[in-house]
Write a protein that binds this DNA or RNA. Structure first.
Lengths: 341, 341
DNA sequence: CTGAAAGCGCTAACAG
DNA sequence: CTGTTAGCGCTTTCAG
């Protein structure tokens, strides 16, 4: 036997074999196994026993093709590098699993063309719904979504007009909220440190909101440092070090693009012997548990990411039952005052 | 129009319509669109134009059912709560995407019966392969895997005998490695702080290896603290605080179940004014970037999680091409000496 | 409560 | 290079 020879196609037991073994027609076996339909108790038992004996496993490709609704939900996220989208996915999966649905996953890496390609690819599996955290407002993508004729939930951001449904919050408002908080605490010379923001338009929206609110208060950003690459703790640490070494007049507060970055900032202060928030104030975004466990808990904005995923999945499922979930669902964010600002 | 009315089944353009529009037979359209087969250039162009005009999107359910191999890979992971399995998933997705494959995801939540149920559910989609980070050595599960007749890669741990393929490393050896390192550094009174370990048998294996190596050196664990719930930074912080307050003779070194926990320990020391590693030494496991960005970089063992996912996917893909990847693939871990031990 | 017929949309196998 | 035929495994009618 050549172990490398292409294996003959695997023939698993089919419904028709189960039916034969149980002495009923195929369709009766189908009904018995799916439950719901009116089937005599004794018939059902016969079929179930036969299925068990043959080790029958339904083929959902066939079932879905024949007219059943798919129980797959396409999910497209921009990244899995920080915990944020993993949290969303976790919430999604938790809700989907309850109803026997499963996510088919694609990661766009914040690349619009890859996103579009993924969408086409995933849609060709004829999923029952689609959840995505858009990476762009791409016209081609929007056209695809509109044409897809299936429930679509855009998650995380509720500012852009959704093709169908949206679940999340306004990142712009979140940025404004942090600005108001810092202004209220008396800070006046504020700086921003962010990661590669060209691709992460939600981070950009937070920055815009932040600047807007400063501007309303007659203030401007004293300094803006955008670093290459995805957000991370080391990057935030490096960012603050650089900002402080290169700016003539040090800021009294720094808003980071997210908590990962801000925690790095806290570490820099610990190393440099800067007292928080006396010497400098730091604030992040996301409300990660790591920030709250710091000796000086991080001032941040908590976003309810897992809940966003859960609600997004729930909306899809409700739509599939013929209900009409709200077009835009706000999942509140919450300012968490810590000891760093 | 009642918006809640169950919508009529959506009829998308089919291959047969494309074929008609292009004036060729269905199978020719199929070949033209899939590429590869010998089709006249002019024919291919006609078909492609027709497909574009009709906005045709192939139906892979039908394609797979009719004999094509599925391009879906079932993936079952125990958790998405920390970055570890998200990293594995990221590596998987990255490799799969290159070949147009997609993961269908299930999360077992470290529950053996849920894992088994997920496996059945996912397998009913007739995926081309399966990747799982097992949550148990469950006999029922193993039987399922063996019977499934598809490439199966068990990831993360290479100690248990895999049903088919395994990609990862020995957690037992990792535990031993850390013990040797700490012993070599002169520590003698060592304690362990872990999260809910009943469910996380890989963490348990690390602990076993750690104890074995201590025992070889004539030492025993001075203290073991197992906390309820999943691992997290706050839990590790609480754990070290409790351990130090309740033990008569403080340990000189503490091995944590993972980096999340250990970083919490570092934070406790910062708060309590304990100098690392002079007053107490701390060590973690995983090599998360957060630990390396600490003012006192965490001593830990780096595991190459994304690479494990990548290689696992690659093995599946190779198997599908008729190649025979090695049954067990070791992805090396690496001790990372930090400033905490 | 059960069954027969038809077909979901596509591709393999064989023929030309 | 192109087409015909058959069928993947299941479920939806429509009949009894």
């Amino acid at each position: 036997m050549d172990p490398n020879a292409p294996e003959p196609p695997i023939r698993r037991p089919t419904l028709s074999q189960v039916a034969k073994a149980a002495g009923v027609s195929e369709i009766t076996a189908s009904r018995a196994l799916r439950g719901g339909s009116a089937v005599a108790k004794s018939t059902r038992q016969k079929v179930e026993r036969a299925a068990q004996a043959l080790n029958y496993m339904p083929n959902r490709l066939a079932g879905t093709l024949a007219g059943g609704a798919s129980r797959q939900i396409a999910v497209v996220l921009p990244s899995l590098s920080n915990i944020v989208f993993a949290d969303v996915l976790k919430g999604l999966e938790r809700r989907l699993e309850d109803d026997g649905y499963h996510p088919i996953l694609g990661i766009s890496h914040y690349d619009a063309s890859r996103e579009e390609h993924l969408l086409r690819d995933l849609l060709s599996w004829r999923p029952a719904g689609l959840v995505l955290a858009p990476t762009s407002g791409n016209a081609a993508t929007r056209a695809l979504l509109r044409a897809a004729e299936l429930p679509v939930v855009e998650v995380m951001d509720t500012d852009p007009d959704p093709a169908d449904l949206a679940v999340g919050f306004s990142h712009r408002a979140a940025g404004r909220t942090m600005a108001h908080y810092l202004i209220g605490r008396g800070y006046r010379r504020m700086a921003y440190i962010g990661h590669d923001i060209a691709t992460d338009f939600r981070a950009l929206a937070r920055l815009d909101g932040f600047k807007d609110a400063l501007s309303d208060a007659g203030l401007t950003l004293s300094d803006t440092l955008i670093l290459d690459g995805p957000s991370s703790v080391p990057l935030g640490r490096e960012g603050l070090a650089r900002l402080l070494s290169q700016s003539k007049a040090a800021p009294d507060a720094v808003f980071f693009s997210n908590d990962d970055m801000a925690v790095g900032g806290v570490f820099h202060c610990q190393t440099a012997g800067l007292a928080l928030p006396h010497d400098i104030a730091l604030a992040g975004f996301n409300g990660l548990s790591i920030g709250q466990a710091l000796p000086t808990p991080l001032t941040t904005i908590a976003s309810n990411r897992e809940h966003i995923g859960y609600v997004a999945a729930d909306h899809i499922l409700r739509r599939l039952k013929g209900e009409a979930p709200p077009r835009i669902t706000q999942i509140d964010f919450r300012l968490v005052p810590g000891a760093t600002a």
